[in-house]
Amino acid sequence: MTNRNHSRRAFLQQGSLVLTGAACFPTGFLHAEENPTMLRVGMMTDMHYADKDPAGTRYYRETLAKLAEASEKLGSQKLDFLVELGDFIDAADSVETERGYLNTIAKPFAEICKDRHYVLGNHCVDTLTKEEFLGGVEQERSFYSFDRGDMHFVVLDACFKSDGTPYGRKNFVWTDANIPAEELEWLSADLKETKKKTIVFAHQRLDNEGNHAVKNSPEVRKVLQEAGNVWAVFQGHSHANDYHEVEGIHYCTMRAMVEKSGPSNNGFSLLEIDPRGVLTVKGFRDQADYQWS
């Protein structure tokens, strides 16, 4: 318990030190409205639900109980919408089994909030195709954007191989994650079309290079930076709390729900957005807290 609390304090200190005096937007950008609407967003990631025995530090069946706690906490928060940042389910040996995992976890997750958004993770489409997974969660597209109040939001899909082939039916290596040219062109055009401050949701990491990162993450970061209106990126995939500020954009990696056994090892969060210039992440259990302004 002591080590976990120390870790949370460390992340708070890191966020405070990095962000002190940081100018994220041009002068006047934070004062478009005197009384903008506060938005409240539920977030969780890497739930990896599966009806199978633990493997290493991953306790697949316990996700249902951890989700029940998240439902209780977030369900009372009057959320504007809910986001799952990828790896909603774990891999299975057959399409039928993986569909069973998806059907089991999708129902209690859907009960938390009517407005839901699912980022594709590599495990979501290990055996299923993207169309099958998206059909199971009633979502039309794997990458898209939407507005809520004074904010613009983008959902990205990096589940593509280097040659542009989409993941599905065990046709990929998980370290080969890419934002293909077509999606990158769409992202650039989408960001140019909005004057609203923007938050991006992704699964594979965009703030660095390595096994857990999108292979062309420098190109993606360039698009985000050149847009000038991207405030933060929330991502998962590497399972541990992490934070980097890159060229004025906050990259926040969220803690995986599947990791370790027992209620105390849960992790999920409430994101509060004040469009005038404050983002607050209220972490539950092992999810770190942040406040950026």
Rank of each mutant, 00 (worst) to 15 (best):
R4G: 10
N5Q: 10
H6W: 14
R8I: 07
R8A: 14
R8D: 12
L12T: 07
Q13D: 15
Q14I: 11
G15H: 06
L17W: 12
L17I: 15
L19N: 15
T20P: 12
A22D: 10
A23Q: 15
A23T: 15
E33L: 13
P36M: 09
V41C: 06
G42N: 04
M44E: 12
P54V: 08
P54G: 04
E62R: 14
E62Q: 14
A70C: 00
S71P: 09
K73S: 09
G75Y: 10
V83P: 00
D87C: 04
A91N: 11
A91P: 09
A91W: 02
S94H: 09
G100D: 13
G100T: 15
N103P: 15
P108E: 11
A110W: 14
C113A: 05
C113D: 02
D115I: 14
H117S: 03
L120W: 08
K130T: 10
E132C: 04
E132M: 08
Q139Y: 06
Q139L: 03
Q139D: 03
Y144T: 00
G149L: 13
D150H: 11
M151E: 05
H152E: 14
L156S: 00
D157Y: 11
F160P: 07
K161F: 13
S162T: 12
D163P: 02
D163G: 00
T165L: 05
T165V: 11
T165G: 05
P166W: 13
Y167E: 02
R169V: 07
K170M: 03
I179L: 11
E185N: 07
W186P: 00
K195R: 14
T198I: 13
V200L: 00
A202W: 11
L206R: 04
A213G: 12
S217H: 12
P218G: 06
V223C: 05
L224R: 05
Q225V: 11
E226H: 14
G228I: 06
V230W: 01
W231H: 00
S238W: 02
H239V: 09
H239G: 01
H239D: 04
N241E: 14
H244S: 11
E245S: 08
V246D: 01
V246P: 00
E247T: 10
G248V: 08
Y251G: 09
C252N: 13
T253D: 01
A256N: 09
M257T: 13
M257L: 12
V258K: 10
V258Q: 03
E259R: 08
S264L: 10
N265I: 01
G267C: 10
L271Q: 09
I273C: 11
V278E: 13
V278A: 11
V278N: 12
V278F: 15
G283W: 09
G283L: 05
Y290N: 12
Y290T: 08
S293D: 15
S293L: 15
